[in-house]
Design a binder for these strands. Structure first.
Lengths: 98, 98
DNA sequence: CTTATCGGTTAGTGATGACTTACGGTTAGT
DNA sequence: ACTAACCGTAAGTCATCACTAACCGATAAG
């Protein structure tokens, strides 16, 4: 998902300020349909929302999706730290025996 | 990077407890060399550390790399929220004019 | 109604990358 | 030394995905 550089660029672009598809594509070395396809995936992933404004579609960051991803990583980070600490402690006791 | 399911599975595996390559591969539907290749990338990405133990190589989560990634996402999340709020406010003032 | 702008969709192509098989190197045990 | 266990690497294959070109629908302006 966030592996693609173009997709990250798009996210940072509309993370800075909401923008239409054409505007985003103008600042990137790819065509407009490519951006459109990325936005479709980002919308399905819940990272982006779309609002119609005339013929233009304004895309914005969806704080909920981004927050959820943050929470997930945060959770994983914490449990990993806990297990890391637990193992370090167990290791210390093991060496104490010898 | 974290786009690949196998890679996420490996991370969660050794996030739970340190493990050798063969042990990790045994719990996954892929071959041992595949796991080895993933671990190479994860090590280069700073998400994992390797320690030799006889013929076995024990892999662990590297809290620094994982924390860095967490911080990056956290930073991005916060600035996006700020810009989101700023635009909402500007929008409110704009409507106030009309 | 006609024209222009804006954007989503489809089909096809090229590149990236995940995987397996085969091989070689290193350490532990006998 | 010989054998076995464990692992990294190289080469090749196959699927996935990002991209472009072409097309069509919808809205705005004249």
């Amino acid at each position: 998902m966030l592996a693609d550089p173009t997709r990250r660029a798009i996210l940072e672009r509309i993370g800075h300020a909401p923008a239409a598809v054409g505007e985003i594509a103008a600042g990137l070395p790819v065509s407009r349909p490519a951006v459109s396809q990325h936005l479709k995936l980002l919308k399905e992933a819940g990272l982006v929302t779309e609002t119609a404004a005339g013929t233009r579609r304004i895309y914005r960051i969806d704080p909920r999706g981004l927050g959820a991803m943050r929470d997930w990583l945060d959770q994983f980070w914490r449990t990993s730290l806990d297990n890391f600490a637990a193992y370090a402690e167990a290791q210390a006791k093991e060496e104490e025996k010898e």
